[in-house]
Simulated assay, not measured.
Amino acid sequence: MVSHSSGHWRKSLYENADYDDNYTDPSFLKDLRTNLNVRFFTFEEAFKGVTRLNNQISCVTLFLLIFYLLYSEHVTPPNVLFTAGLATSMGYIFYRGRKLFDLQFLLEDSKTLLSVLVFGYLFAPLLHRLTNAISTDTIFSMTFFVLLLNLIFCDYGLSAAMVSKALSLNAAIFAAICLASRLSTAFHAFVLLVEAAVFFVLYPIFISLYWQWYFLVPIFGVCCGLLYSISFNGFLFYVLFTGFINIFCPYIFVIQQRYKHNIHGPWDEAIVEENVEGFIENNL
């Protein structure tokens, strides 16, 4: 309803004094737009995108498997340390590429590696006894929740407010310290901390630069092999869970895209677009 029709209605905040506040002009909806900037993904894109989540789940799974093998004395710490060193060396060669033979980079990286190993070895006895007063059940429960935090706040290559590399890394290191306190010797604890550094510090740096969806295959295969040798039920659950995330969830996501619908119009929040070049030209 219009209280007075003497003035012409305009889309302006400080005009139209003759009109009621809830007046809507027929031209108000002329700027209505639907599904602006909506992108529809194919199943292949969704499948490849979710492999980063599965890769992090596999990293956590393999780290826990290494802890179990050390905890049950199925493997010796030197063998685990040798395997981790070999894998890290191969990754480092691929990461540096042509800069591998640059003496400056080699010295800097060697000093960093030496510092981490020396301080980790010196503090391993302290960390090994840090949580002696806490029960094993409590340690395992805390480990589960902090590794869940690691998965939630990990950087999967998307720009999101909840992504926190620092929180994800700290959660993983805290879990490693908790589990290291349940191993038999300080050297076992040192090896597990080295593994935590490889999985949660070095490996994320590598995949952030060179990630491809098929990087999931080798770590998935290692997890399947170890789980099959330890527990068939655990192996079956891991395979089904991975398939659910990497196949079923992308399929449901692609199917549900047909229901995407959003509207844009004059009610949207105003966005100020600045023409920097024009501003500079007008003020010179």
Rank of each mutant, 00 (worst) to 15 (best):
S110W: 09
I152M: 06
Y95A: 04
S164E: 01
L106K: 13
A171Q: 01
R52C: 01
P125G: 02
F28L: 04
M142L: 15
P78Q: 06
N55K: 14
D109P: 02
C154K: 11
Y156V: 03
D109V: 04
P125L: 00
Q104I: 11
H128V: 02
N79E: 12
C59L: 13
V118E: 03
T83S: 15
L113H: 10
A46S: 10
V50I: 02
V38L: 05
S58P: 05
G91F: 05
F174T: 15
D102W: 07
A166S: 15
S141L: 12
S164K: 01
N35S: 05
L106E: 15
S89P: 05
F144P: 08
S115V: 11
K30F: 14
V116M: 14
G85L: 00
S110M: 13
F140V: 08
E45F: 04
L167N: 06
L148K: 10
F41M: 10
I93F: 09
F119A: 13
L86S: 11
L114Y: 08
D102F: 06
L103N: 10
A161F: 14
A87G: 10
C59I: 08
H128A: 06
K48P: 02
V75G: 08
L62P: 03
P125A: 04
I134A: 07
K99V: 14
E44K: 09
I139C: 03
A161V: 09
L53Y: 15
L100T: 00
E108L: 14
L167F: 02
A161S: 14
T76F: 06
